[in-house]
Amino acid sequence: MKVRGFEWVTGWQQRGAILPQRKTAASAGYDLAAAEGAVIPPQAMVMVPTGVKAYMQADEVLMIHIRSSLAVKRQLVLMNSVGVVDADYYNNEDNEGHIFIALWNRGTQPVVIEAGERIAQGIFQKYLTVDGDMAGDGAARQGGFGSTGKA
């Protein structure tokens, strides 16, 4: 039985997508790399594909954080500050659970992201729910990115 991990989105392994890895024994985050190159204009946002998806237990979430080197050296931030990948995003019917990294360029010059460049890190975490929470009794996720806000 699979517990948590990463897989390639269909067709992206052949395109060079890299499965996330921790780089040291004490690293909390798994480095997510750009599966395609991108140019992020000043004061603009680009959705950078990773070519990967994440599976996890129902009471877990994958938190996405910017790599500090991109923030400090290249003036990039995550558009939504911290990304949240829910367990039911995996294999959704809209985009198979493909993780995109929404990068915002706060600088005055374009920033070039190379394919294979590490751009974010994902940290798996357990979360708690409140007494009487009924979310698990509802319908299954129907879409991909941003789909839980459609109701």
Rank of each mutant, 00 (worst) to 15 (best):
V39W: 02
G37N: 01
D86M: 04
E117R: 00
S147V: 07
A35D: 01
I119A: 07
G122P: 11
G132H: 03
E93M: 09
D31G: 06
V85G: 07
L19W: 00
F124V: 12
T10M: 10
G29P: 09
I18N: 03
N80F: 05
V48H: 01
M56A: 02
R15D: 11
M63A: 09
I113W: 10
Y90T: 07
S69P: 05
P49D: 05
Q75S: 12
R67T: 02
L62N: 08
I123F: 10
T148K: 15
P20W: 05
T24H: 12
M79G: 15
F124H: 12
K53F: 03
L128P: 00
D137Q: 15
A35L: 03
A139F: 12
G136I: 03
S68I: 05
R4Y: 10
I64M: 02
Q109D: 13
V84L: 13
E93G: 10
Q21I: 11
L78N: 09
W8I: 03
W104M: 10
L70E: 08
A115L: 00
L103Y: 04
P42N: 08
A26E: 15
E36G: 09
E7L: 05
G116Y: 06
A38F: 05
A58H: 12
K73L: 10
R74L: 08
K23P: 01
A54K: 03
A17P: 02
N95Y: 11
Y127F: 15
D131A: 14
A139N: 06
Q21Y: 11
H98Q: 13
W104D: 01
L103M: 07
